[in-house]
């Protein structure tokens, strides 16, 4: 069943590439361009996922698994990850699918991202992870119909509500926001509405198929890169997440080739390679500290209404804005 990761990855990579989905830009555009095109996409895909996750858990096809809450780790890791993604020229998913588009800077960013994530997970920086782990909250969710045992707290569990209630309320608000606000028109065949529906379906299928392999979580990037590096250096077997990464790269490569958008791209200024490497290092360290990247926490965790993911995401955005201001807005 590990191969399902590859399949979901191919679909996800192709959708991200064609939809030009870049969470780095989604956050930054609000500040820099005052544009909400990608934010609308995010709002709509979140609304769809909120409903799908609760529904599929109700049907018994999956169980939500909100990440444990650790304010200290979520805040520090989230902020560092946010700083890193601007330097790296892409978030975890952005950097991964750009590897397949032939962006050579993304290769460096991804490599340093995976390597530092690995080091933080089980290498030179693992002492830090252990230290910050002591601040983990003991709050958990209780409802076995919807949640994995001892999963982290959610908006529903904190307020003692049935998960349907906050999911429906928030989904309605997000849909209203997505459909009632104006945004720029972009000449893409794959616009934000279609992209949202496609991404939500891929996300749900990812959660279900990953559960079949014993990994009870939805899409995520960081551990996949760690798994690939472990496979490469220590011959460890591939997991669902590892094949998912290979799928994203392959799917994006094929989509870019078909649409005539593949090219080996190199920046004129070689310093850019150093910049993206530093960005990758910050991202890897930040993501593992926070317990997830913009896919594991933001894309998959927020729709489960996990408190940890919401906190981490706020700090992804704040870190992103800090670095964007530092690099692009200061005079």
């Amino acid at each position: 069943m590990i191969w399902t990761g590859l399949l979901i990855g191919v679909l996800f990579g192709a959708a991200l590439q064609q939809g030009r989905v870049c969470f780095n830009s989604a956050f930054r555009d609000i500040l820099l361009l005052k544009d909400n095109y990608l934010l609308k996409l995010t709002a709509f895909v979140f609304a769809l996922q909120m409903i799908l996750f609760v529904l599929l858990s109700q049907l018994g096809w999956m169980q939500m698994n909100p990440k444990p809450l650790n304010l200290m780790a979520n805040i520090i890791g989230g902020y560092i990850f946010g700083l890193g993604m601007v330097l790296a020229g892409g978030c975890a998913s952005g950097v991964t699918y750009r590897v397949g588009e032939g962006l050579t800077t993304a290769w460096f960013a991804a490599l340093f991202y995976g390597l530092t994530a690995y080091a933080t997970n089980s290498g030179a920086f693992s002492g830090w992870l252990k230290w910050v782990g002591q601040f983990q909250s003991t709050l958990t969710t209780a409802d076995p119909t919807y949640y994995v045992k001892n999963a982290g707290p959610t908006l529903a569990s904190v307020f003692g509500l049935n998960p349907w209630i906050p999911a429906i309320i928030l989904a309605v608000i997000l849909v209203l926001y997505a459909f009632l606000t104006k945004t720029s028109d972009r000449p893409t065949k794959f616009n934000w509405k279609i992209a949202s529906v496609v991404l939500a379906i891929i996300s749900a299928l990812g959660f279900i198929t990953s559960t079949w392999t014993g990994r009870k979580y939805g899409l995520g990037i960081t551990n996949g890169w760690v798994n690939l590096l472990q496979g490469f250096t220590m011959n460890k077997p591939l997991t669902w997440e590892g094949t998912f990464i290979l799928g994203i790269i392959g799917g994006s490569l094929v989509a870019a080739l078909i649409s005539g958008e593949f090219k080996f791209r190199m920046p004129k200024n070689p310093i850019t390679y150093l910049q993206v490497a530093v960005g990758g290092i910050l991202m890897g360290f930040g993501a593992v500290t926070a317990g997830g990247c913009n896919i594991g926490h933001f894309f998959t965790g927020v729709p489960q209404l996990a408190i940890s993911s919401i906190v981490a995401s706020v700090f992804f955005v704040l870190g992103n804005w800090t670095m964007a201001w530092f690099l692009f807005m200061r005079k």
Binding site: C22, L103, P267, K268, F328
Partner: peptide
């Protein structure tokens, strides 16, 4: 010449 540059 913005070829090869990283977004944005």
């Amino acid at each position: 010449d913005e070829r090869g540059e990283v977004c944005p």
